[in-house]
Design a protein around this nucleic acid. Structure first.
Lengths: 238, 238
DNA sequence: CGAGTACTTGAACCCATTCAACTTAGGTGG
DNA sequence: CCACCTAAGTTGAATGGGTTCAAGTACTCG
């Protein structure tokens, strides 16, 4: 269905993949990897494309090699769409249906960036996770990480003033990068707002404020932050 | 360490347990259950006790048979404690360390109620989950449920006005009970407030309002709600 | 270069917090 | 069993942070 719009760039050679150590196939020998019988397609998507919709039958999981993807959830009650997680390099998505007979995607996944992904067949993945403890453990770890991410979101973002939320978010977002680096940041104001539960106007204000104080610089789709300063703001003290 | 304060009421006979079908041992035959070699202790705690602390070495997981437990998280940044999940009958807790060499509890678990629990040894549980696909699948399902719960929290609670949040929360809380039933509700105002990210004063106000409109009744540690009305409020329309 | 979109900024308004006073409920000892 | 004491809940008034709406500015893409 969506396959039509997917830009399949051919079958991937996992053995040469620079991020294999990050993937769920980490820890497998080249031999084992070869014997998987797993076909992995390579796909590319431009910014703003929907990879899958909440409720759709889940036939594939994906490994995100580059780009940023938002997972959003439509509330059954007040029908509002809310971003629940942001994914980056190395993240796995769409795997929630593993171990289900008729899996459905629990979120809608949208690219914020141009993105490169690997396409993994859910049923094959199911089989692999049954057979290979390595893969099983790796998948479990993804569940854990997802839960941790969600709980981070609840704690850092659900409490405190707007500037503390935003500071915590930026701090966390830039956390995996070395200090003083330009960090990819393809989020629009309204997406940050949706993620943090603020209005885009106020996000704009606070970010402008951070810039004025020199805590934050922005250039194109990248940012550079003063981690120490943000940390202080996130903790509530000014 | 805490064991001293635990009220061990003896070893449990899982085969007679009325909630076995809800537990991670559901689907096992009595035969298999008998062969587990798993020792399950029965424990009882009064209200307001800490079952385990965040960061403590995790030796046990627990099945909650009755009572309500809050899982709270201390933010590394602004050192504030926030409730991330509420657990009830049938829920499993403390199992986050499975598949880890030196597991630690990621939350602090506190009883809000008098609680009955089963005590499960983490390392035994590890072994079982390796050996028995049934158990493995059941555990995976718990991870999923936990993540769903967290995402519910983010969506329903992180957005919207206070009355909508509270309505969504009460609606969800009473969801598993038949309409018009008295539902156990041992939360103090400040705990509801902590869970929803509001002040206890405001929670009090909104709940008083709900009562005035007849959407909510409260008696002792139980509540009764008009699900339809709460649903409407949760969706933002009045 | 022009059109549309995203972003910024200001001003008024509103919701929720804060703080404090008061009321209620629960528990203990006389 | 009542009087008292403490903790929890309620309510009011003032404050403040964030939203909303609208106008103006800067980007980006054709």
């Amino acid at each position: 269905m969506h396959s039509a719009s997917w830009n399949l760039t051919g079958q991937s050679d996992c053995q040469l993949c620079p991020m294999r150590q990050l993937s769920i196939f980490a820890g497998l020998t080249v031999q084992e990897l070869d014997n998987l019988g797993m076909t992995v397609q390579d796909i590319h998507l431009p910014a703003g494309e929907v990879l899958y919709h909440q409720g759709e039958s889940a036939r594939h999981a994906f490994t995100l090699r580059s780009g940023v993807i938002k997972l959003s959830l439509e509330s059954p009650l007040h029908g509002v769409e809310k971003i629940v997680r942001l994914l980056r390099h190395g993240d796995l998505l769409g795997f929630e249906g593993l171990n289900h007979a008729h899996p459905r995607y629990p979120h809608t996944a949208t690219t914020l960036d141009a993105a490169d992904l690997c396409l993994l067949d859910i049923s094959e993945l199911n089989r692999l996770s049954e057979d290979l403890p390595h893969v099983r453990r790796a998948l479990l770890e993804r569940w854990q990480r997802a839960l941790e991410e969600s709980e981070f979101h609840i704690v850092e973002v659900g409490a405190g003033k707007a500037d503390a939320c935003l500071a915590a978010f930026l701090y966390h977002w830039c956390g995996v990068f070395p200090d003083g680096a330009w960090v990819p940041f393809p989020m629009a104001r309204k997406e940050i707002a949706g993620y943090l539960g603020l209005s885009s106007a106020h996000v704009s204000r606070v970010m402008a404020d951070f810039k004025r104080h020199g805590y934050l610089r922005e250039s194109g789709q990248r940012i550079m932050v003063q981690r120490a300063s943000l940390r202080k703001i996130a903790s509530g003290m000014h």
